[in-house]
Design a protein around this nucleic acid. Structure first.
Lengths: 240, 240
DNA sequence: TAGTGGTCTAGACCACTAG
DNA sequence: TAGTGGTCTAGACCACTAG
């Protein structure tokens, strides 16, 4: 049972939306009407409406009113972290190598750097028992002032690696998830036959000013790894 | 430039967090201190803090104070919709068939039904130009009262299919994303060689009471389809 | 006991909408 | 012009925390 006035109001309106009493696209009563209906102050009503808006149930249009949002079940929360995904069955991480290289065309494009900007390449292999099951390659613009400490690199997530130059709070990340048949360096590293199905997660990190600060791919043996996501609809209101 | 008082306060505190003036785990000044510091009322300060909390920057502990959250770059927003993903290059959807079957063991487990509960199976094939590139199978508990209209089924998303029995607002969805080598019915339907890498998205839908109301898998030819996700950190505050 | 965040009220002014 | 949501204020009481 909700213990506050605004929680009771949220629950009541949420149920009216669910039952279709307030239908998608339609206007719900004005704040002043709701004040009278629930015998609450406008601030309390507004607190309830703010929660409903956060939960994706309604939206407000100044000068007009609050409207029921059309349900959108497309949004999902994906919890991804190259260390976590394998939690429970990662036994060993091997740092295959750290190199400083002249950027390839692909790297110049991805990291938006010029030819003279050297790049750090980090290659790692994740093991479950004795089998390698994930091969990870990351590229970072090389900065002479930033020391490369192998012990740190070995166990770091991508955001942690770039955090030396960019505060974690302002980091933006883009993931691209796909499936590929194993070939080239990843096939050799993972010791799978050619064509083995791999789940590939490409990560691209941006600084506060939207400058790329890291790019990389991680290749998981398909049978070892799945990503899980849950629809985010009304997530927040349910929590409240 | 922020036009309201609370937006200016949010921006100021956000920068202090970014610069490390307010460090992760540490307490920020109390609401009353902030009232004095910014010359604003407590409600305005609280509005700012609420936005910062929504954005994941801080959290509050009653009786103690507000604290800077440790950065978490693991959360991502994934926009998934079996129709949208292929937007731009889907030319045809073929409804391969709609059948009513006695549930297999797997279906009994997934949908938490008993042996006597029949199940509707829907199979579709998505084409780009002349090539099939996605094979979709969905299972729904069969309900005699709900008519099966083929024209509706052909173009519906999974939530739309179950919306006949469950309001869309209360729907919860779980996705499991993986990579598999093509085999069996999906290999035949997609007309790819055996072992071809497929991106597989499993969808499971739950009603308000957490009862499974749909289960299915969609198999994408790896070279045709990628899922994109972006880190959700401070998404909301940036918008504001 | 002093201080903290959480809840709630009454009241004011604003820009905007729509008849 | 009447009504709407957005912003902001001053003030009150509460349960909880920590010395």
């Amino acid at each position: 049972m909700a213990s506050t006035i605004y929680e009771r109001i949220v629950e009541d309106i949420r149920q009216k939306i669910n039952k279709g009493i307030y239908a998608p696209g339609e206007m719900i009563p004005s704040e002043n009407s709701l004040c009278r209906e629930y015998g609450a102050s406008r601030i309390t009503i507004r607190k309830s409406l703010a929660l409903l808006a956060e939960g994706g149930f309604i939206y407000s249009v100044p000068g007009k009113g609050s409207f029921v949002r059309k349900p959108n079940n497309d949004f999902h929360i994906l919890h991804f972290n190259e260390m976590d995904i394998i939690k429970g069955h990662v036994d060993k991480i091997v740092l295959l190598g750290v190199k400083i290289i002249v950027p390839t065309g692909e790297l110049i494009r991805q990291l938006k750097i010029n030819k003279n900007q050297k790049v750090v390449v980090i290659r790692r292999l994740f093991y479950s028992k004795k089998d390698p099951f994930a091969y990870d390659v990351k590229y970072l613009p090389y900065d002479k002032c930033k020391p490369i400490v192998e012990e740190v690199i070995q166990y770091a997530t991508f955001p942690e690696l770039v955090s030396l130059s960019t505060p974690l709070f302002s980091l933006r990340k883009e993931l691209t998830i796909g499936a590929e048949n194993a070939q080239g360096e990843e096939q050799k590293a993972l010791k799978v036959e050619k064509g083995h199905s791999l789940l590939v997660v490409e990560q691209k990190l941006f600084s506060d000013e939207d400058k790329p600060v890291g790019w990389g791919k991680i290749y998981y043996r398909g049978e070892y790894c799945h990503l899980r996501a849950v629809s985010s609809f009304n997530e927040r209101v349910v929590k409240a």
